[in-house]
Every structure is written in C-alpha cells, then in structure tokens.
C-alpha cells in the first residue's frame, strides 16, 4: 500500500519539476505563452488561435475544407435574426450591445460593482432579463446562435482581458481560475494543464489534444461530435465528464473564473469565432 501511495505522490510531484510558483498574471501569461512557443516552434504565435489545427497539418487541411462551407453558418443567420428581434418592450439586444454586437473583445470582463467575472453569455442573458425576456440556456441552442453572430462580427478583435490591479477580488478570481486549470480532478486524475499543456499535441486514443494557448478565442463552436453548436462552458463540462469529475454549473463562478484565466492567457491573439472543431 505504501508503495502505491509513494508512486502516486512521486508521479504527481515529478510533473512539476520544470515548473514553479509564478509571480502574477503578467508573468504567468508570458511564461504560459513562451511554453507553447517553445513546445511548438513551427507554429507562428498568432496561429495558436486556431487550436489544434495550429499544430496538426493534416487535420488542418480537413478543417480548412470544412471552413469553405462552415457548419456554423446557419447559427450566424439565426443569431442575427434573434439579435434584431424586438422585445415586448420595444427594445432589442442591439440596445445593450450596439447595432452589430461586435463586442467579443469586451468579455470576459471584471465587474467591480458586483465583484465578479462577466462573460458574454451572462451579459446577453442579463440584457434579456432586464428587458423582461426569458433567459437562454447556457450550453447549447439559442445562446450559441446569438454568440455566433456576435463573435462573427467581432472577428479580428484582439484578445485583451484585463485584471484590474486596483481590485484584489479580480486577482482572486484570476487565481481561482488558474488553480482550476492546474489542479488534477476526477478519478482519472487529470488537470486541464495535463491534456492542454504538458501533453498538448499528444494522442489520446484517436484525438490530439489542443494547446491551451488559444483556448477561448473561437467560441461558440460547431463540434462534429456534438452535431451541434456549443459554448465554452459546455466544453468545460464535457472535459470534466471525460476525466470522471462532476462538471460545474455553466456560467457558475467556477467556470466563469476559469474562462477569465484561459482567455487572459491568450491575450494578444485575435478572436476568430465561431469555430468548427472535431
């Protein structure tokens, strides 16, 4: 029994040999991005926004072919109609997010009044409920259509998540997301970082894991496995189920903070959603 415990502890500790405690978000981000640039030297930095296709030439060819007739196109059209639909009170989503909803680069953001991270999906539902409309479900369906439209109109915007230095609660939310990313969970004992950092680019059965650098840029996505559109938080939940961990609530604090962290790590890349993934 002692031998097994030792194996578990030594294995866990050995993963951290080349790593150590970082100072703060800016230093974390620089080290994070450098890690991937060193791991995948053939990938131009800006290309990490294309996820696994930035490191897998054969899959990229297929993906580029799919992008010629993108499976998310219908969602964009439906999202545009919903975006411009007039509420019962005469207003619409355009009153909250402007005429074309090109606000992807404003989210996720820290709301200092409420002391919480606000994502684009959350902001959409808050706009709906503030105008007497029903909120949308957070993982799939209508929410992905609206965000597909808004993300499409936001393509090319730079990822520039801010962590205000004058509000320690923002740093705490970032740290919470960071802890989540690096913490092993589930019976399979995996952290986000295990698949998307330490072994990014490796095969897990028939699939190659994507680099964590670039996560958060391309949502929502049409995923072939789902045969439908889904949000980032839907994917978070799917990852957790894969490692036999109970998923958290979509748009709950845990996943909003995780989104805050992973998107901040991709600062400098460009938003390119909606996307198509395997």
């Amino acid at each position: 029994m002692k031998k097994v415990i030792s194996s578990a502890l030594v294995g866990t500790l050995s993963l951290g040999i080349a790593f150590g405690v970082s100072a703060g978000p800016v230093e974390d981000q620089a080290a994070f991005q450098k890690y991937y640039e060193n791991k995948f030297p053939d990938t131009p930095t800006a290309d990490f926004a294309n996820g696994v296709y930035s490191i897998l030439p054969t899959a990229r060819e297929q993906w580029e072919a799919i992008e010629e007739f993108p499976p998310y196109e219908i969602a964009i059209e439906a999202g545009e109609a919903f975006y411009n639909k007039t509420f019962a009170n005469g207003k619409s989503l355009a009153d909250c997010f402007g005429p074309d909803g090109a606000v992807r680069n404003q989210y996720p953001k820290w709301d200092s009044d409420r002391g919480m991270v606000v994502t684009m999906e959350l902001a959409i539902n808050e706009c709906l409920t503030a105008n007497g409309e029903k909120p949308l479900k957070y993982k799939k369906g209508k929410i992905t259509e609206v965000t597909a439209y808004m993300s499409f109109n936001s393509r090319g915007q730079e990822v520039d998540v801010k962590i205000p230095s004058d509000d320690p609660r923002a740093l705490a939310a970032y740290e919470n997301g960071k802890e989540h990313f690096y913490t092993k969970r589930g019976q399979l004992n995996f952290a986000c970082a295990d698949c998307h950092m330490l072994t990014a680019g490796n095969l897990y059965r028939a699939d190659t894991t994507s680099p964590g650098f670039g996560h958060g840029t391309h949502w929502p996505v049409y995923r072939s496995k789902w045969q439908s559109m889904g949000t980032l938080h839907r994917r978070f939940g799917g990852c957790h189920k894969n490692i036999r961990a109970n998923p958290y609530k979509a748009q709950g604090e845990e996943y909003r903070n995780l989104e805050y962290f992973v998107t901040y790590m991709s600062n400098g890349l460009t938003f390119n959603g909606p996307g198509a993934r395997k």
Binding site: G16, G20, V21, S22, A31, F32, A191, M197, L198
Partner: peptide, 8 residues
C-alpha cells in the same frame, strides 16, 4: 501541489 505545474 497544483502550483508546481505553473510554468515559470
């Protein structure tokens, strides 16, 4: 141990 996985 999670902190040990954060790249420096």
């Amino acid at each position: 141990t999670w902190r040990m996985r954060v790249p420096k």
